[in-house]
């Protein structure tokens, strides 16, 4: 019985962390159609922003939830102004440019922090479930992910700002003729996407050993999740993260972590063969 609960929590955690890893990319790639290959590096920088802040004596939650997203968002803003804004609508070009950016950020982080592993310890103690001990921080990640999805849904679906953003992504010419500046809306959206990537990196930082190349570990999973999710931002993210998280964890428990990763990738291939436009092109259509 205890083990069932523990497995259940681990599955929830796997789903939540996939959603968290992918949410920034979902905004930048899913909404804005910018293939951001530097997504992993934005997360890496969020992690470093957290570690540096904590080492300066700032409260770890402030560092993770406020400082890291703001710092990475600002970096994203600079990137958007200097590089991305020239490339809207040019899918392949954004891929090349952001790949270059990813190499640049890895190099920069290596120069500043060195090519060694750094990290901070987890701020939440372990929790006992019957005879089992689990990482209390995993529950924190689940809570943050759920709150983030709700917040995203409310902002995009229930506020005027969200409506304008979604409208601009679909028809920039119409938004423009209604008096909104697409350029500024793109800029703001990219800022939000980067900040979300930074937040994800910051929240995962206490769980891992961070190196400048850490971003590489996230990028593939993030793209798979977003692409398999399909056109709807939140419904797509939640549905594909659920499918992959559940499959990954079940195989990890039953067999081994290697098989878990293999199963995740096979599931992605099969899913995209059956639903080339993503889950939400067939199910939950028209949802947010």
């Amino acid at each position: 019985m205890d083990l069932t609960v523990v497995i259940g929590i681990e599955i929830l955690y796997a789903v939540a962390s996939l959603a968290l890893i992918s949410v920034g990319l979902a905004v930048v790639f899913g909404m804005m159609k910018v293939i951001n290959l530097a997504h992993g590096e934005f997360m890496m920088m969020g992690g470093y922003a957290t570690i540096v802040s904590v080492n300066l004596g700032i409260n770890v939650f402030v560092a993770m939830l406020i400082i890291a997203p703001v710092v990475v968002g600002l970096i994203g803003l600079v990137v958007e102004r200097l590089v991305i804004r020239h490339l809207y609508g040019r899918l392949v070009d954004t891929m090349l440019a952001t790949w270059g950016l990813s190499l640049f950020f890895i190099g920069l982080a290596t120069i500043i922090f060195g090519n060694t592993t750094t990290g901070i310890s987890t701020p939440i103690p372990g929790v006992a479930i019957g005879n089992y001990q689990i990482n209390g921080y995993n529950l924190f990640i689940v809570v943050v992910s759920v709150l983030l999805m709700i917040a995203l849904y409310l902002v995009l679906g229930r506020t005027r700002l969200g409506l304008i953003a979604r409208g601009t992504m679909q028809r920039p010419d119409m938004a423009s003729s209604l008096g909104y500046s697409p350029e500024r809306i793109y800029m703001a959206t990219f800022f939000c996407g980067s900040a979300l990537s930074g937040l994800a990196g910051a929240i995962l930082a206490p769980l891992v050993g961070l190196v400048p190349t850490s971003g590489g570990a996230y990028i593939a999973k993030a793209f798979i999740t977003v692409i398999a999710g399909g056109p709807s931002l939140i419904a797509g993210l939640v549905s594909s993260a659920s499918v992959f998280g559940v499959i990954d964890q079940i195989f990890t428990f039953a067999l081994s972590p290697v098989i878990g990763e293999v199963a995740l990738l096979i599931a992605a291939v099969v899913l995209l063969r059956l639903l080339p436009q993503g889950i939400t092109a067939r199910f939950f259509r028209g949802r947010m």
Binding site: L3, V6, I7, E10, Y13, A14, S17, N131, Y132, Q133, I134, N135, N138, L207, V208, G209, G216, A217, Q249, T252, F253, S256, P257, V258, G260, E261
Partner: peptide, 18 residues
């Protein structure tokens, strides 16, 4: 248990060990 070099998530392994 064997882990590829990029595995960074050990939650399920820790439960299995217990």
């Amino acid at each position: 248990d064997f882990f590829p070099l990029d595995v960074a998530d050990f939650g399920s392994t820790i439960a299995k060990i217990q």
